[in-house]
Design a protein around this nucleic acid. Structure first.
Lengths: 249, 249
DNA sequence: ACGCTAGGTGTACGTTGTACACGGTTTTAG
DNA sequence: CTAAAACCGTGTACAACGTACACCTAGCGT
């Protein structure tokens, strides 16, 4: 599971040279990545083992290593391959542009919930992910914001979508693993509900009794509207409130 | 790794009975949980193996199973133990109350970054987590919001903090695993920067050149202020905008 | 025709959670 | 006071994981 990161950079940013000698390859890097994505979509990231990917291709685990240096690099390639599926964020008024950026990200997380578990801080960014990020900055580039403010605005939206996405991804994964829907599962936790008494948890029982948990508002839609409203307050205010630079990295 | 969830409920919500017979126990559930939290704090959740926890206690892996049914339940107990460390959210004006809620959550994530990897959708909630949640709802309970709106407001804040927290936790984990600071690591990726040319990534190179990446704004402070501003727009508007109920849960 | 190169296989190792059988220790029942 | 019952901790063992290594085979360049 160690990884030579410079090798990952080459893998992602430079087109792979193709062999001239040797037997015709049944596999290829693209086919391995494609198969891995299919496995992750269908069975989750926990089921994404080298043996399982090889099996879907009709080969053995070790055959993959001819096309991909290791699992870590395979994950890098999967992430960038998924980013390449999404179109770039169009220019336009900032609010529509950011909303498109958020919805696109959300759609991607819904299609590939495992992405949230793979996009960790030091995963090597590939060209498609970076192009998309660049387009997002461009959307808010003409508002007269300082450079750090441009970054902060886009980051704020991304963090919100990440947060909602993570919750959604956990639910999807749990439903697949257990075969029980979220609602059914919680309904079956009777031994838990016994402890939900009004004296211990007054608000929760009140919300429960008034149906607040039965028809929840759409978490993504509600939150996105609020975040964009908040950014509008910031962007459109004549003198922008100061935010101190990061002290905690 | 299977788990009988009713057993988890009992474990979390009912005080453990103590043995009357047998040799005096060197270990106890509380000691095991405490040791596990220490390991996770110091070495991350990946290093949290039964063998490692037992080692810090001077015992063997299997000894833990006398006090905890399995690893999954140990994680349940760790999560609720950490929630028990944080005070309850005080009542007060909604904005101050929610800000406190967010800051408290943020402080907890900074102290125990592994919590973000453990608080998945079906982890059994313990009494401390629920009490805290209840207090958060109470903060926005007197604004005349509908039940679903109360839930949505608190959830929106939580999602944002989750998103920032996840990024932060990934960074902390990577720094510990590699022993290299975030900044040093990215500075060392010269083979990556070679691909950052103005024709491919115009905005990113521009932001880079104008120093936008060097002194980033505090992601948590900036985003929290925007989210609360956005919620203020919602809460204080005379006729609140409609949000359609969730279709995707 | 020969050899180099690349594709794919089989075996093996260390690490994980934990099932199972065992031996030692303390309290309680007869 | 003795024997049984209950409990604590250990040692061994297994399946699944990523992947190092040695190996065989197919096809192009000379």
């Amino acid at each position: 599971m160690k990884s030579d990161r410079d090798r990952s950079v080459r893998l992602l940013w430079e087109p792979p040279a193709e062999a001239t000698r040797g037997p015709k390859a049944a596999l290829s890097q693209a086919r391995v990545v494609e198969a891995a994505i299919k496995v992750a979509d269908a069975e989750g990231v926990d089921a994404l083992t080298m043996r399982r990917v090889a099996e879907t291709l009709g080969n053995t685990a070790m055959s993959l290593y001819r096309h991909v240096p290791g699992k870590s690099e395979l994950l890098d390639l999967m992430v960038d391959a998924v980013w390449s599926e999404t179109a770039h964020t169009p220019k336009g008024p900032w609010r529509e542009g950011l909303e498109f950026f958020a919805r696109q990200m959300w759609a991607m997380y819904r299609a590939h919930p495992w992405m949230l578990q793979l996009t960790t801080s030091r995963r090597m960014p590939g060209p498609h992910a970076m192009t998309r990020q660049d387009a997002a900055y461009a959307v808010v580039s003409e508002l007269g914001l300082a450079s750090e403010e441009i970054v902060a605005v886009v980051t704020a939206v991304a963090h919100f979508v990440d947060g909602v996405g993570r919750t959604m991804a956990d639910r999807v994964q749990a439903e697949r693993e257990t075969g029980v829907s979220e609602e059914d599962w919680w309904n079956g936790r009777e031994t838990l509900w016994e402890h939900f008494t009004p004296d211990r948890l007054p608000m929760m029982t009140h919300i429960w009794n008034t149906g607040g948990f039965e028809q929840p508002l759409d978490e993504f839609e509600f939150g996105l509207a609020r975040v964009l409203d908040g950014l509008a307050v910031f962007i459109e205010s004549p003198e922008r409130p100061a935010v101190r630079p990061s002290t905690c990295l």
